[in-house]
Amino acid sequence: MTTHHHSTAELAKLARVLDRPRATDLDFLAELPPSALRQLRDQVTDLIAVREARRMQRIGAAAKLVPAPLAAKITEAAFGPVLAAAIAGSVDPARAVAIASSLSPRFLADATVTLDPRRATALIAEVPDRMAAATARELIDRGDYLTMGRLAGSVPDRVLRAALPHAADIDLLHVGFYLEETGAADRLLAVVADRVPGMVRATAAADHWAEAITLLDLLGPAERSHLGNVVADQDDDVLDGFLTAVTALDAWDTLLPAAAGMEHTALQRLSQRPTLHDPAVLTTIADLALTQDLWLDLLPLTEHLTPTQLHPIATRLAAEPAETRTTLIEQAHAAGATTTLRRITDLLPG
C-alpha cells in the first residue's frame, strides 16, 4: 500500500519537473518503484541544468553588476520566476538573498516551484526567517504542498520553525506526504512535536489516513513508534479509524515496525480495539510477520493479546515448516521474548 502512495507522490513531483499540468499523464509509469521515479526525476533535472549551465552563469555574473533592488526589478520584469530559480544557484548566496529581499512573496513562491534544492543549498541556508515565513505562507495559501515538501528536507531547522506556524495541522500532514526522505520526515515531526496530536486528530476528521500512513512509513524507528504512541493515546473513534484504514490499505507491514518500539500502555490500547479481535486481521498480521521478517516486531504486541486473539497467530505459525518454526523460536529466545513466545507456542496444535 505505502509503495503505491509513495509512487503517487513521486509522479506528482516528476510531472512538475516535466511541466505536465496533470500527474495522471504519467500513469504509465505508476508501476515503477518510488526510488526509480525519483532517480528519473533527478536525471531530468540534471539534464536541464547542464543544458542551461553556461547561460545561467552569464546571467548570474551580470547580476553582480547592478544594485540589488534594480536586479530584483529586472528579475521580476524580464526573467520571470522559472528563470530566476534556475539562476539562483549561479549567484553568490549573499547576493541572491539581497536580490530576493526586494522580490514579492508571490514571486518568490513562484520561483521555489522549480528551484532545485540540490543546487541551491548554500542559498537556502542564507534565507532569512522572515523571507522563509512569507514564502511558506504564500505556498500554503495556494495549497502547494508539493513544493513545501520538496524543500522541507533542505532548509535548516530554524527556517522550518519560521515557516510552519502559519500552517494548519492538516497542512503539516500534506507537506509530510511530499517529503523526500526519512531524515526530512523525522526532522519535520521533531520541529512540530507539540502539534503532532493535532495532526492526528485533523487527519481523522478529514479521513486522510492514507497520507498519514505514507508519512508513517517514511519515519525512522524512533519517530515511527512515537507517532504510534500518539495515535494510540487518542479517543476510541480516532484509533478505530486508524486501524480500519491500516487494514483497508493493507498497511500492517508499516504499523508492525512502529509497534515494536511503542509503549506498553499504547500496545494495550491497540490490543483492546475491535479490529484486533478479528481473526482474519490477526491471520493477516501473522502472515506478514512471518513472510516479511517482522516476527520480532510482532511479539511486543502479542504480549497484550488474549489467548483467543493469539489463536489465529499460533495457527499461522503452525503452518510454517518445522525448521522455520525452530528458527523463529530461537530468534524470540535471543530477543528476550521467551515468556511472550510461550503464550503462542502453548496454543500450537499437538
Rank of each mutant, 00 (worst) to 15 (best):
R142H: 08
H174M: 05
S101K: 13
E138V: 14
R130T: 14
L218S: 09
A152P: 01
T182W: 05
H166A: 15
V155A: 06
P105E: 04
A96C: 02
L173T: 01
A206T: 09
T147F: 05
L160Q: 06
L103W: 03
A167Y: 02
Y178L: 09
R118W: 11
R158A: 12
A122L: 12
A184F: 08
A206E: 06
V113N: 03
V113T: 13
L189A: 04
L172R: 02
V192I: 05
I170P: 01
R95S: 01
R119P: 03
I124L: 15
L164N: 09
W209Y: 08
A190K: 13
D157A: 14
M148Q: 10
L219S: 07
A184W: 06
D141S: 11
D186L: 00
A168M: 10
R95N: 00
M148P: 03
V97M: 05
R119K: 14
D171T: 06
A111W: 05
V175K: 03
V113M: 02
G220I: 06
V196F: 08
R150W: 04
A206G: 03
A205H: 08
A111Y: 06
E181K: 12
F177H: 10
H174A: 10
L189D: 02
A222G: 06
I213N: 07
L219T: 09
V155K: 05
T147K: 01
A111N: 06
G198A: 14
S154L: 02
V155L: 10
V155P: 00
A100T: 07
E180D: 14
A202P: 09
A109E: 02
A205G: 01
A100S: 13
L216Y: 02
G153P: 15
L151R: 04
G198S: 10
H226L: 07
T121Y: 05
F177R: 11
L146M: 12
P128Y: 12
D169Q: 09
A185D: 10
H226F: 09
T147D: 08
E138A: 15
E126T: 10
A205W: 01
A206Y: 05
T182K: 15
V159R: 15
G143N: 03
G176C: 09
A163F: 10
P156K: 14
L218I: 00
D157V: 15
D169Y: 06
R150S: 11
A210N: 03
P221N: 03
V192K: 13
W209T: 01
L115A: 12
A133S: 14
I99Q: 02
R201W: 05
R130P: 00
G220S: 07
L215D: 03
L108K: 00
V97R: 09
A122Q: 13
L216M: 12
P128Q: 13
A184M: 04
M131P: 07
R161V: 01
D186S: 04
E126F: 06
D217R: 05
V97H: 06
A111V: 05
F177Q: 02
L146D: 12
E138P: 14
V191T: 14
T182L: 07
L172E: 14
D141G: 15
L216D: 08
D144C: 08
R137V: 02
H166F: 10
P117F: 12
L115F: 08
